[in-house]
Design a protein around this nucleic acid. Sequence first.
DNA 1: GCCCAGGTGAAGC
DNA 2: GCTTCACATGGG
Length: 274
Amino acid sequence: MRDYDLAATLDSGQAFRWERREQSFTGVIGRRWVRLEPLAEGLRAETAEPVHDWQWLTEYLQSGVDLGEVIQAFPDDPPLQQAVAACRGLRLLRQEPWECLVSFMLSATKQIVQIRQIIALLCERHGAAVDVPAGESPAFAFPTPGQLAGLSEAQLRACKMGFRAPNVLAAARRMAEGKLDLNRWRTLPRAEARAELMQLRGVGGKIADCVLLFAGGHNAAFPVDVWIKKALQDLYFPRRRASEERLQRFAATHFGPQGGYAQQYLFHYMRTKR
DNA sequence: GCCCAGGTGAAGC
DNA sequence: GCTTCACATGGG
């Protein structure tokens, strides 16, 4: 696990459930509680029960990815090089699609701290409890589609998700009816997967791109949110105001096959600098 | 109180 | 076509 900045990765707005305590992070991946702590060479992982096969964790963390190769594929421009210099070791996670989809449906016009709060409420009220080591606080899995599909809109609104509630409920019901296969999106061409995602009410281009990137392994997906707009405007078009259309086109064409990684570097750089 | 938040969809020009 | 607005809720 060289060249891996665990803190930047777990706290860069791609996943919303990690809780930091000093150097370590506690979270739930699937149905497993886990605590992660960076070491000089590698990482210490603690679980509630003995684990023999760690594939689920290396998959989630994408720790086998050669970051040098990824960065090599970036366009060679000063803003991006600056962002890489500032956050080297930042990685993209490979998240579970359902949790990722719902999380980003909830992200619309919400600050990251509020997204975290909504998701925490949703999990503790409606997710299954998972085993934790003695002395640890209770932890919960992300609610399954079936669990959410059985709720009322009022119950979802009670988790403070506001106008996003009916959209989440509709997606959960389609999933529960077996009319959505999220894993298909990993094998489908990106444009097709994106179009299918956007069939869901409350999922536009930006949220679809987040799911493709953070769960679907589509590394070229480049979500354009308010932070990225500001990054592109300030770093790439400092002299003149770029139109929305211009920014979108630049985002889609400039960054290449690892554009999603580049996007995450720019995003994190903008949010943490100074 | 006001403005904005990892947006989206629909209504209004 | 492009622009504006509603949508819940809470932080700064």
